[in-house]
């Protein structure tokens, strides 16, 4: 699995995609750091993450849309699936590689925390809980993006499908309370208050596992129908 993780992370940063993702994300962070933190003279670094989490909706597809769609289009999936590696390890390898990119991006946001340290002492525990929550939210987003990418060989379709799904999950609780567990953003919103929300963590991780399994099933199934 390590081989796949290494290659995937490398691919992101050998092509412009990795830089576009990290660059866009940090650029948006700068905007929200100014609007949500610096503008109020606040030391609450975590406040910008309410807005940053919504940015994730629009930029996750940049990372995930090519994951399987491109391999299928170019034909390199033949190299992957005829190797002795199992589909599960391929899927997990790609998933973990994406999470690593997110972690790299999160490390980038610490720059803003550094600025705050220059002026005072932000509450580090809350910051860590927020970053952890953000990582868990990213996991759901990436697992769904990966699933969408496994459905088609067209990256654009995979990307649009991913974005559409996230936008729908925003508005679901407005339709009916029953859909509240599907609002990933609302679940994340508990973390910046410094709360380690166990129920939310369990729900988000469950969804992540669910989408990973769906991806494995789709790829496994394609072996017998393609």
């Amino acid at each position: 699995m390590w081989a796949i993780i290494k290659k995937e992370v490398k691919s992101y940063f050998l092509s412009p995609i990795g830089y576009i993702f990290v660059g866009l994300f940090l650029a948006m962070c700068s905007v929200f750091f100014y609007l949500d933190v610096a503008y109020y003279g606040s030391l609450q670094f975590e406040n910008m993450f309410y807005s940053v989490a919504t940015v994730l909706t629009f930029i996750t597809p940049i990372l995930t849309m090519r994951m399987f769609a491109e391999e299928r289009k170019v034909g390199t999936e033949q190299l992957l699936y005829t190797s002795p590696r199992s589909i599960t390890s391929i899927v997990l390898g790609k998933f973990i590689a994406n999470i690593l990119v997110i972690i790299i991006t999160e490390i980038g946001t610490l720059f803003y925390l550094g600025i705050l340290y220059f002026f005072g002492k932000p509450h580090i525990q809350t910051v860590l809980v927020t970053l952890f929550g953000f990582l868990i939210l990213s996991m759901v987003y990436i697992s769904f993006g990966m699933f969408a990418s496994s459905l088609t060989e067209n990256q654009i379709i995979a990307g649009v499908l991913t974005m559409a799904f996230f936008i729908i999950t925003w508005f679901l609780p407005n339709i009916n309370e029953i859909f509240a567990p599907f609002s990933f953003i609302n679940m994340f919103n508990k973390f910046p208050s410094g709360l380690i929300a166990i129920e939310e963590i369990v729900t988000l991780v469950t969804f992540t596992i669910f989408f990973i399994i769906l991806t494995i099933i789709v790829l496994q199934r394609r072996k017998s129908v393609k």
């Binding site: 691919s11 034909g75 390199t76 999936e77 190299l79």
Partner: peptide, 18 residues
């Protein structure tokens, strides 16, 4: 089909890992 953004050696090493 090949991974076009890798160098020849990187690709062969990746295949060895796979």
């Amino acid at each position: 089909p090949l991974y076009n953004d890798l160098t020849v050696k990187e690709f062969i090493c990746y295949m060895a890992d796979l």
